[in-house]
């Protein structure tokens, strides 16, 4: 790892100005991806702006519509939150199964969503629940946030402050995980609110996305059996040593079936 200047701001405004003054700065949340990336010299920022000292970025609040989770809230805190467990249990269960206990004690929801790893779990939930990503500049809807592999709508000096999840009537996340890393080979989050069904898919393609074909079928018939006829386009799937494109396409359907079954 190359050396860098370290900043430890106490509020969002100071974090943003540190970024603006840096030659090639990076915000760091839990560091569970950033530090390994820097060790491999895949990133060599001139400045690290550590967000862990900013109290206003942590914590979970509930209102009538749903739940708002501060960007620096760790996976362990989301998993253990009685509010999240009561309001959106599928989200607590998702957080409880990211990485391993020590990683969950450091890794944060904001870091995971801002990084947008193609195999990360949270993006599927953000998309399926129709969450709003609140930043230091604006509010961004889930559908506009994830723009490509490791790419998001965030600007260089913009950081996530919180993510707001509306409550769903029923929701479930099913992932076929890599047994070594626990990253999703394919993960599918299904959320149903009234007659509106949303499906968020991660791991399958270069960027988490909505499963429009699956949603269309589930909107008229919310049952696992209804999914039989849906064609999943193999050509768009990722392929690597862990799973071929054909296998991932197959898994999308299997994980969706399981998630729908878990909702009803």
């Amino acid at each position: 790892m190359y050396d860098f200047s370290y900043h430890n701001p106490k509020n969002v405004a100071d974090a943003v100005s540190a970024m603006n003054e840096a030659e090639d700065g990076k915000f760091v949340a839990g560091g569970q991806t950033m530090i390994p990336t820097m060790k491999h010299r895949l990133a060599s920022p001139s400045d690290i702006i550590d967000l862990r000292g900013i109290a206003e970025l942590s914590g979970i609040t509930v209102d009538g519509r749903g739940i708002s989770i501060g960007a620096m809230t760790t996976h362990a805190e989301v998993a253990a939150s009685s509010d999240v467990q009561a309001m959106i249990p599928a989200l607590a269960a998702l957080a409880a199964n990211i990485g391993d206990p020590a990683v969950r004690n450091c890794g944060t929801i904001g870091g995971s969503v801002a990084n947008n790893d193609p195999a990360a779990d949270y993006p599927a939930a953000v998309i399926a629940l129709g969450a709003t990503v609140k930043t230091s500049k604006r509010e961004i809807s889930a559908d506009d946030f994830f723009t490509g592999m490791f790419e998001t709508a965030l600007e260089e000096d913009e950081l996530i402050t919180a993510i707001s999840f509306p409550k769903a009537d029923a929701a479930a996340y099913m992932k076929f995980e890599n047994p070594a890393s626990r990253y999703a080979i394919v993960g599918v989050f299904v959320a149903k609110t009234g007659n509106d069904v949303r499906v968020g898919i991660t791991g399958a393609t270069p960027c988490a996305h909505r499963g429009m074909r699956l949603e269309e079928v589930l909107n008229s018939n919310f049952s696992a059996d209804a999914l039989e006829s849906v064609e999943i386009p193999v050509a768009k799937m990722n392929a690597d040593i862990h799973a071929s494109a054909e296998y991932r396409a197959h898994l999308v359907k299997v994980m969706t079936r399981r998630a729908v079954a878990a909702c009803s």
Binding site: G31, Q32, I35, P36, I48, P101, A102, V103, N105, C106
Partner: peptide, 8 residues
């Protein structure tokens, strides 16, 4: 608990 190889 944290992994001290992944924390500065």
């Amino acid at each position: 608990s944290v992994k001290s190889c992944t924390m500065l």
